[in-house]
Amino acid sequence: MNVTAVLRSEWAKVHTVRATLAALACVPLATAGFTALACATHEPGAGAADFDPVHSSYFGLGFGQLAALCFGVLVVTGEYRGGALRMSLAAVPRRGLFYGCKLAVVGGLGLAVGTVTGLVSFLVGQALLGEDGVGLGAPGALRAVLGCGLYLGLIAVLAAGVATVLRGPVAALGLLVPLLTFVQPVLGTGSPAFRVTRFLPDAAGQSVLHTTPWAGLGPWSGLAVLAAWTLLLAAAGWRALERRDA
């Protein structure tokens, strides 16, 4: 079987279902929207010494990330509703090819939409920061824009991997949302717990958005930690799909 054909089929599965398209569209809308809310209330010049203008542009990422998680989960759990997976696997019985192409489409779309999100959110945020705003040429700015794309792409694939193990959207989102959006932000960066929680997928991956020194991991090492999580959970999904009777 050829990879291009299966990729086309997986792409068609995404764009023929409104819910997955809507989830994808919500990624930049939520990120830039909540960033705009935060940056619009910023008082120029009143910031602390460690004020990070680039990072301020990604205040809304936690909300956009929810949409990315939903996207990754929905693409997979759609297969587990109404027995659709049986027909899909009858069409593409080589499960490695099927799963690989599905994750490639999820990751590719996550990366593309994530990069757009990174750029839009950056521009919106900086415009609203007034005199504290910086341009794309500022140190770490471009890294943050591209890093946002990589971050969201990896998060979507991670969600797809977890959804393949758990099969249902409620179980998958029930696990992913608290773990990736509550634990680290609630415990904060100041507490001793951060020595551990900075290795969680969200905290580690979002290190790439920081341009001033902070308590977390370095930009690329943080992203590498997220990539390792993604690899691990995608592999768990593969193991489940490969072993189970459909």
Binding site: K13, T16, R18, A19, G82, G83, A84, R86, M87, A90
Partner: peptide, 10 residues
């Protein structure tokens, strides 16, 4: 197999 085996949203 089982009545179409298709996702209802499509």
């Amino acid at each position: 197999l089982d009545a179409g085996a298709a996702l209802g949203a499509r």
